[in-house]
């Protein structure tokens, strides 16, 4: 049984996640993770073969922050807008008070000419904890079905 306060907090977290990426508020997006978080993006074919290889991995919030800094000051990538569509999460209560959440996503990109395409589809596997009434990602593993990445992967999934 998961208390309705927790469910509400998780719903807010999911909504903020999509909002902060899609509105280009990446510096605020970083704050949705705990300090000791794990964030990684994994091709489904590696998961299927039991291989540990990742597309990207952050072992704490500082590394998530560094991803954003690098995008802001160093990297060049396709000019686009992101649009996340995230399905309702399946929630499982954990003994330590955290909640496991699994949800599907579709991520569309749109270029400067106004053309949109499906950039990525896959699922999130999360461990969500609660601090001061707010839900945060202790773990967010993005399993990418579209592992033939169209061009490149810059802004977060």
């Amino acid at each position: 049984m998961i208390a309705s306060e927790k469910r509400d907090a998780i719903a807010d977290l999911m909504a903020e996640y999509a909002y902060r990426i899609d509105r280009d508020k990446l510096e605020d997006w970083v704050n949705l993770f705990t300090e000791d978080c794990l964030y990684k993006v994994v091709p489904r074919e590696n998961v299927a073969q039991g291989l540990p290889g990742v597309l990207l991995i952050c072992l704490n919030r500082n590394m998530v922050h560094d991803r954003v800094t690098s995008l802001r000051v160093a990297n060049e990538y396709n000019i686009h807008v992101d649009r996340h569509v995230i399905g309702a999460p399946r929630l499982t209560a954990q003994a330590d008070g955290s909640v496991r959440a699994e949800s599907n996503y579709a991520l569309f990109q749109t270029n400067q000419e106004g053309e949109s395409w499906l950039f990525s589809v896959g699922c999130y596997e999360d461990v969500i904890v609660f601090q001061g009434g707010k839900a945060l990602f202790k773990e967010r593993v993005v399993i990418v079905d579209t592992y033939a990445i169209p061009n490149l992967l810059a802004t977060p999934i």
């Binding site: 990207l56 990297n75 990538y77």
Partner: peptide, 16 residues
């Protein structure tokens, strides 16, 4: 691996 591949800090630009 964060350096390389489609999401790599020093290789994402090559695709573009």
């Amino acid at each position: 691996t964060n350096m390389i591949g489609p999401a790599g800090f020093i290789s994402m630009e090559d695709g573009e």
